[in-house]
Design a binder for these strands. Structure first.
Lengths: 106, 106
DNA sequence: TGCACATTTGACTATATTGCCAAATGTGCA
DNA sequence: TGCACATTTGGCAATATAGTCAAATGTGCA
């Protein structure tokens, strides 16, 4: 694969990869219903704040979320709504997976 | 996070994660133009066949691609066309990232 | 059967990711 | 200033992932 092509796919894969983690996908899902501060997300996820913060950093670096510091809190929100389409497609994949399973059982 | 919720996001993140690798994203892109055998993909990617085969296994297990063995060759194709929407959204994210950069430069 | 070709699998090393704790940083307020 | 709270960062151990080579498997054909 030519180098500029490889770079192109590295950049794009990086964006997708940032959502390829259960906690981060949960965050995206949660932010689809509005902005949330780190403390709210931490409460919902039930992990260490530092862990949540790092996941948010990964999503921010990818460009999936943006942060808004207000007072001592930091509110995160989605930068681009289209990431929600991922969920629909993932459901299609799951559906296709199931019908394949059915076929194999007969 | 409750256990059934965690599992739900693990399953879905796994599907997304399978596309979060440059080579695998390239494969998805290439398959959007029709089925390809392992040898063709290997040629295009320029990596070891075994590496390509393993990437294809990951995509197959995720449910993104399906294989069709014909003779001594194995042809891969997309199971669900909607994964191509990912590309459009990724471009939006890149665009948003760029305009943010512009803003920060002023 | 035996050979050429296509693909997968196993074993291994190198590298990357994750999560936790502790410490640092930043903010508002008494 | 000093304290409480929110968040980020650094360091570290456990785990997961990626790539390579060698070997195994499967197919078609002479």
């Amino acid at each position: 694969m030519e180098n500029s092509i490889r770079k192109k796919f590295e950049t794009r894969a990086g964006i997708i990869k940032s959502m390829g983690h259960p906690t981060r996908l949960f965050i995206v899902d949660e932010l689809s219903r509005g902005e949330r501060c780190v403390c709210e997300l931490t409460e919902l996820i039930g992990a260490d704040v530092s862990t949540v913060s790092k996941h948010l950093t990964i999503l921010r670096n990818a460009g999936i979320v943006q942060d808004d510091k207000r007072g001592s809190q930091v509110f995160y929100s989605l930068t681009v709504p289209c990431v929600l389409n991922f969920f629909d497609c993932v459901e299609s994949v799951l559906k296709a997976r199931l019908s394949k399973q059915m076929d194999s059982i007969g």
